[in-house]
Design a protein around this nucleic acid. Sequence first.
DNA 1: GTGAAAGCGCTAACAA
DNA 2: TTGTTAGCGCTTTCAC
Lengths: 322, 322
Amino acid sequence: MKPTIYDVAEKAGVSIATVSKVINNTGKIGAETKENVLQVMNDINYYPSMLASAMMGKRTNTIGLLVPDIANPFFAELARSIEDTGQEKGYNVVICNTDNNPEKEIQYLEWLKQKSTDGVVIATGVQKEETFKELIKENIPFALISRNLSSIPVDTVLLDDYLGGYQAGAHLILTGCRNAICLTLNVKTSSEKERLRGFKKALLDHEITYNEEYTISCDGTIENSTNVINDFLKVNKNIDAIFALNDMIAIGAVNGARSFGYNIPEDISIIGFDNTILATISHPPLTSIAQPIEDMGSQVIHLLVETIEGKKQSKKQVILSP
Amino acid sequence: MKPTIYDVAEKAGVSIATVSKVINNTGKIGAETKENVLQVMNDINYYPSMLASAMMGKRTNTIGLLVPDIANPFFAELARSIEDTGQEKGYNVVICNTDNNPEKEIQYLEWLKQKSTDGVVIATGVQKEETFKELIKENIPFALISRNLSSIPVDTVLLDDYLGGYQAGAHLILTGCRNAICLTLNVKTSSEKERLRGFKKALLDHEITYNEEYTISCDGTIENSTNVINDFLKVNKNIDAIFALNDMIAIGAVNGARSFGYNIPEDISIIGFDNTILATISHPPLTSIAQPIEDMGSQVIHLLVETIEGKKQSKKQVILSP
DNA sequence: GTGAAAGCGCTAACAA
DNA sequence: TTGTTAGCGCTTTCAC
């Protein structure tokens, strides 16, 4: 049987209140008593139950992380940074793969609530505003990363997606491309829309007209994006560039273009977004708009933990540059 | 204030015992009463506190996952599978990045214990046998994945690493290589040793002698493995193959060989291990010994959950083929 | 079928 | 400085 605070108290010949005080370093306790209690705790291999202390209103020191898919390197790298910063600050993180499925999101959120998770980081795509309202109503701290919610003030860490999109467009033009297409996801978050908007603006600024039909979408997997691009190239002959809205589908675009017979970058230029490990290992290296993933992860945790620990009331929005 | 079971009881005009029974579907309750209670729970937006029920001896439905680094695609893909299976069975998973650092492992294990985590999956490398003994002593269910512990019977899901190593060796020989080197990690787990053993056996079976000095190690990062390979090739001229013990360092080996001026696979063959997303996107595609990652993840959870839920006493060892 | 009451392990007044 | 005690929200006998 796992020892309890009573066991410690008994063996140390003190009351449980005293033990509690030495555990939490609160109140006043004599150096000797403290020493003794610590000794006993160590002797009988005691560790406090977080469940019990959480029941008394203390934190669970756990935060939830909602991502579409942890196997996607962008989110894996983000999760790493979030977990690192969390651990520094004493929090554990629970991963929740939502596949951008609203039902799974709701389910996870429900679980996290039941477990009295202290807060949640949301990096997931689709989501009804309803869900956020509810979190706010229930007073559950949460922070968004990589997605925007303009209607309600919430803690947010964002990339300047518009600028990123613009950079992608400008880069492609610089390399001489005139007939670019965009490969996006079926489900578009605010981030994707912004990237697209920036991209179009870049073309516009260089007096290149963008054909709206050149915005094609895929489900986000490498296979699907490969096929989509391959199919598209079959019917549209003079494409000379692809702007893929993330690295995963950029790799798909590379595959698709290659299987179509194009050489990269001779026949067609491809630019990705995120600059994950995928971009760095691809050969030739994939040009990709870099997101400061590590920084983003650590910033959300800082924001979130501050509100969890009540050190700040107002909501902040942090915007980082690509 | 978050509603409690008392609020439900009061509004429904019943006792908390009755409410508890409808929540848990235990005991006997009249259809009408049940209906009514359910209605009230819904009305006031009640959800039970897992903390409180866990305190009464119920499970927390949380399991910990110890990995060296979730940003490494192999572990990310594994985590995805583990989380998926966990969620199917009603468990949340807490990620713990240990960096193979024994101190961090201990720390995480301590946290998980304090939080009454139901069990833990260990995919981390270095670890003292001590740690396992303690888990067993404290009666905490745990399962190992991708690493072996021969001295104590524990639930384990393993790849047949020896066979994988053998296959790698055989493949390299088949493609005509005669001077292969092995790129391993500084910290060697049982898996790595087995892979190496299998590899050497393959060479032996083909009457090729393996030079022990051709086993070089790196810290596991792409950068480091790139450098290590580059440096090694500078002084050892006639190497025609590299067996990298995982995909991460295989990519590094590819980079290193390329930066040295070698063409792949013309000048040198490189074979990896794991067959993660890295291998599939590398160009030309990296040959890699495939681990059935998804299957492995789901199997550990099955093993672990069975012991958590007391459905099995004996420890099982599942060995999958590469 | 339903309810009263005794805890689970801990924290935090309040007393002593 | 230390101890007594009343909960936190829930489950679970055991009566009714």
